[in-house]
């Protein structure tokens, strides 16, 4: 089989797609370093190293060629997304475990690149938050709330030595989502909770700027046609509408939509996680349904669930529904009367 076309679009490869995604993460990473110290660089590098290690090992075990699959860049994207979704000063084995679930369980057990049903980074994250909830809630406090953030060497120490010379407690504090969850349950009025300095002007001091940078990077991705507008728009709109409705119904117990959009992993998810083409719906209408329901679930989990954030579970739950959504939302083919259901043989 070697037929037409004999032409290929230039500068076009999976590697390039992945590099564009990584490049779009850079503004967010810089903002993260600015507010939370260079610790994120340690976790990014560590996760990437573990991911490449697991990828190599499992490619070898599966008898697959190393070069094309190690250079496609997908495993680096997975590693970086997980690192960005996790606390930065966690012990090294927490990253190792997360990456194991992401790369080995979610990706290679399902057949490798393009075959996985579930978003690998979110599988890693969900495995960790279920197994090690305490470690997963120890977040570094942003500069401005804390006096100082750990420097690079302290971060290395904390990650590799654990609670050795320095205690991570010196740097960590509860996230705005954690604080909200605890205090709202205690019956403290929403206005009083949100008045605390850690909440900043939208989604938490420092964190809202990081979220803005993810938004900026994400818009670049959409402008470069790496991702279409459907998923981010539907995801953020559904979050805003769901949170807005709850807030309107019961403003004392539900945070306003702006807080939800700029806190936790909302922006990262909208542009970088929910947009993962392998695990997201693929038709235009399907993407709207998939991302819209994911955004809705995030707010439901945040408002009524046991976990402070709901990104990972919302995405994984919607991953389950993707084949179903796709089959029922096929676009109308040229010359046909209707789109809709396809796939019945």
């Amino acid at each position: 089989m070697n037929g037409s076309p004999y032409l290929l679009r230039g500068n076009n490869s999976v590697t390039l797609v992945m590099l564009k995604v990584l490049a779009a993460l850079i503004p967010g990473i810089i903002a993260h370093v600015w507010f939370f110290g260079p610790g994120i660089v340690v976790s990014l590098l560590l996760c990437t190293a573990f991911a490449i290690g697991f990828e190599t090992l499992f490619l070898l075990m599966r008898g697959m060629p190393l070069k094309p699959f190690l250079t496609d860049g997908s495993v680096v994207v997975t590693a970086c997304l997980l690192a960005l979704a996790m606390p930065t000063l966690a012990p090294w084995w927490l990253y190792l475990t997360g990456i194991f679930f992401a790369v080995v369980v979610a990706k290679h057990f399902y057949g490798g690149l393009g075959q996985n049903l579930f978003n690998p980074a979110m599988v890693g994250y969900a495995a960790l938050i279920v197994s090690f909830p305490v470690y997963m809630t120890q977040w570094v406090a942003p500069l401005g709330i804390a006096q100082v953030t750990p420097d690079l060497w302290e971060a290395f120490d904390l990650v590799f030595a654990g609670a050795g010379a320095i205690s991570p407690d010196a740097y960590t504090s509860a996230t705005p989502l954690d604080v909200w969850k605890t205090q709202a349950r205690q019956g403290i009025d929403a206005a009083n909770i949100l008045a605390q300095p850690i909440f900043g002007w939208a989604g938490g001091h420092g964190r809202e700027i990081v979220a803005l940078m993810y938004l900026a990077g994400g818009l670049l991705l959409v402008a470069n046609r790496v991702a279409t507008w459907h998923v981010p728009v539907a995801f953020l709109l559904a979050m805003a509408l769901t949170a807005g409705s709850l807030h309107l119904l019961d403003p004392a117990h539900h945070a306003p939509p702006l807080f939800h959009l700029f806190s936790g992993g909302a922006m990262l998810c909208a542009f970088f996680i929910a947009t993962d083409p392998v695990t997201a719906a693929s038709t235009p209408l399907g993407k709207l349904i998939y991302a819209g329901l994911a955004g809705f679930l995030v707010i439901i989990i945040r408002a009524f669930g046991g976990y402070p954030d709901g990104i990972a579970f919302a995405v994984l739950l919607m991953n389950v529904a993707v084949p179903f959504i796709d089959a029922y939302t096929q676009p109308r083919v040229f010359g046909h009367k209707h789109g809709g259901k396809r796939g019945q043989a």
């Binding site: 690149l113 393009g114 279409t228």
Partner: peptide
């Protein structure tokens, strides 16, 4: 490489 379901083909398809 394996298909990553990016949908570029669907967006390019004139049919």
């Amino acid at each position: 490489l394996p298909c990553i379901r990016c949908g570029a083909c669907a967006r390019a398809c004139p049919a």
